[in-house]
């Protein structure tokens, strides 16, 4: 039999998908992945995904932005080029706040965007599931559930039977990567 990367089941509703995930997890499957057109409430708890590290990274990006923003202003106006502007002190803290604030936001937002792409493993222009015919519906109104071949319990016929028992529209294999 041809090797495959796992099996995909197509469901007509988000409830059926969530019920399927619950059933397979109770069987002991762990390498499950879902593909949905929008975030389906309740799935992340089912799939036991860990805590996101994004908040920490975004915070760190903001702090770095603030330090850089203030640092550049301090270096420019206090160290490198002293300019008497209406008799104000060279180190004019209140005047340095607006640009520092903007730099904080910029640092946090850009860090958030880059960290997100890394977390999502994007850009990744090809994925085996894209080879499945009809998988385009995952961005329209269908809910797909994948069981990876690397799952401890994975057995082509047994897993197919387990998926069929969930009442999907159909079950298809994920093709192996074409060399």
């Amino acid at each position: 039999m041809k090797m495959s990367r796992g099996l995909l089941a197509e469901f007509a509703s988000a409830d059926a998908l969530v019920a399927g995930v619950v059933a397979l997890e109770s069987h002991g499957y762990s390498q499950l992945e879902t593909y949905t057109p929008f975030p389906v409430p309740g799935l992340e708890r089912r799939l036991r995904l860990g805590h996101s590290r994004l908040p920490l990274l975004v915070f760190a990006g903001g702090v770095i932005g603030a330090i850089l923003g203030y640092g550049i202003q301090w270096y420019a106006d206090v160290r490198a080029y002293l300019l008497n502007s209406g008799g104000r002190p060279a180190h004019a803290v209140p005047a340095f706040i607006p640009a520092t604030f903007e730099a904080t936001i910029l640092g946090a937002a850009l860090t958030g965007f880059v960290a997100l792409l890394i977390a999502l493993r994007l850009p990744a222009l090809w994925h085996p599931v894209f080879e499945v015919e009809g998988f385009e519906s995952a961005s329209v109104d269908r809910y797909w559930l994948a069981v990876g071949a690397d799952d401890r319990l994975f057995d082509h016929n047994g897993t197919r039977a387990a998926l069929d028992a969930l009442g999907p529209l159909r079950v298809v294999p994920i093709p192996e990567m074409v060399a």
């Binding site: 975030p39 799935l43 996101s52 792409l117 977390a119 850009p123």
Partner: peptide, 13 residues
């Protein structure tokens, strides 16, 4: 960028 809509992606997104 190859968006798939996996649950992990939606969660981070």
């Amino acid at each position: 960028m190859g968006w798939q809509g996996t649950d992990n992606q939606w969660r981070h997104y």
